[in-house]
């Protein structure tokens, strides 16, 4: 979708991710985190139909369950004893703590899955060149070399296999020896070929003066609007944390878990901020679903 979440300027996207991760770290409250988890899972489904989640789902689940179980076992600070497990008290506070850590982990990992979908390599390089311009060119040149060297190594392996030198079968010693030989020839060969790359770069004026950089992305009106939205909601979220509204106090005395009063305001605000991709992506989905035809 041309105008979905992915179409925003990379800086805006980066800002969203920085704020979101900061928010997840700050709002240590099971209900706030539960809401965040639900939102981020929905975002995942909206962006790629849950493809990435399916791939990483097991790992996320195992990690979350492990922290959920292990935290109460190792942490026994608190006032309310729930039960005894092998002569150790299991505290209500530490159970809640476990829930919060598990949810934070789940949220951050699934948020990174969406980061992978949204920040494609070209956007990444763009962001990188914004902050470290002299390194960006080096990175782009090396990015070309990774697949190239891989392809060349496979080619060398194929040809040498028919000659009887292989890294795939035979005793380990000879396999390792052949592997080293292949790498050595890969290096010689690639150095030889890269002289030509250098010539072609020089011929096109590389190194004669200050390079300009092509800017594939520019700030559009909607990017500015979104920037305003993110800054506004983001600062409210930070303010809420400063007031202590999104944080559950565990010690010395456990705060009431259910939300009350002003906390509801920050709860809703937190959702409005975090669901930024849902608003932008959802608008497009609805457009495609219902408004495609002139009736």
């Amino acid at each position: 979708m041309v105008r979905g979440f992915r179409s925003f300027h990379p800086i805006i996207l980066l800002l969203y991710y920085i704020f979101a991760i900061a928010g997840l770290m700050l709002y240590q409250h099971p209900i706030f985190l539960g809401l965040a988890a639900a939102t981020i899972l929905i975002i995942n489904f909206m962006l790629d139909g849950g493809e990435q989640l399916k791939k990483w789902g097991w790992m996320i689940a195992i990690m979350s369950v492990l922290t959920l179980i292990l935290t109460p076992l190792f942490n026994n600070r608190g006032n309310y004893i729930l039960f005894y497990f092998f002569d150790r008290q299991v505290m209500l506070e530490s159970v809640i703590q476990g829930v919060m850590i598990a949810l934070t982990l789940l949220c951050i990992i699934s948020l990174f899955l969406t980061f992978n979908i949204v920040i494609t390599p070209d956007k990444f390089v763009f962001l990188f060149s914004k902050f470290l311009p002299q390194w960006a060119l080096l990175i782009m040149l090396s990015m070309r070399f990774v697949p190239l060297l891989r392809k060349r190594l496979i080619e060398i392996g194929d040809v040498q296999q028919v000659k009887g030198l292989s890294v795939k079968c035979g005793p380990i010693r000879s396999r390792a020896k052949n592997g080293m030989l292949f790498l050595q020839i890969l290096l010689t060969w690639s150095l030889e070929e890269s002289i030509q790359t250098a010539d072609s770069m020089t011929a096109r004026g590389y190194g004669i003066g200050k390079r300009s950089k092509y800017q594939p992305f520019y700030m559009k009106k909607r990017d500015w609007v979104s920037l305003g939205f993110l800054l506004a909601t983001g600062s409210f979220v930070a303010f809420g944390w400063w007031l202590g509204d999104g944080v559950l106090t565990l010690l010395p005395i456990l705060e009431q878990v259910l939300l009350q009063g002003r906390e509801w305001f920050y709860f809703i605000l937190w959702f409005v901020f975090l669901a930024f991709p849902i608003w932008t992506e959802g608008k497009e989905m609805i457009k495609w679903r219902y408004f495609r035809h002139i009736s």
Binding site: R144, T197, S200, R204, K213
Partner: peptide
């Protein structure tokens, strides 16, 4: 030059096309 592969410096086609223009500024 002779070898099509070795003259290419960049990872994607767009970057490759503008490589020279970026050098000139």
């Amino acid at each position: 030059f002779q070898d099509p592969e070795n003259q290419i410096a960049m990872d994607n086609v767009m970057e490759e096309l503008i490589f020279g223009m970026e050098n000139i500024g």
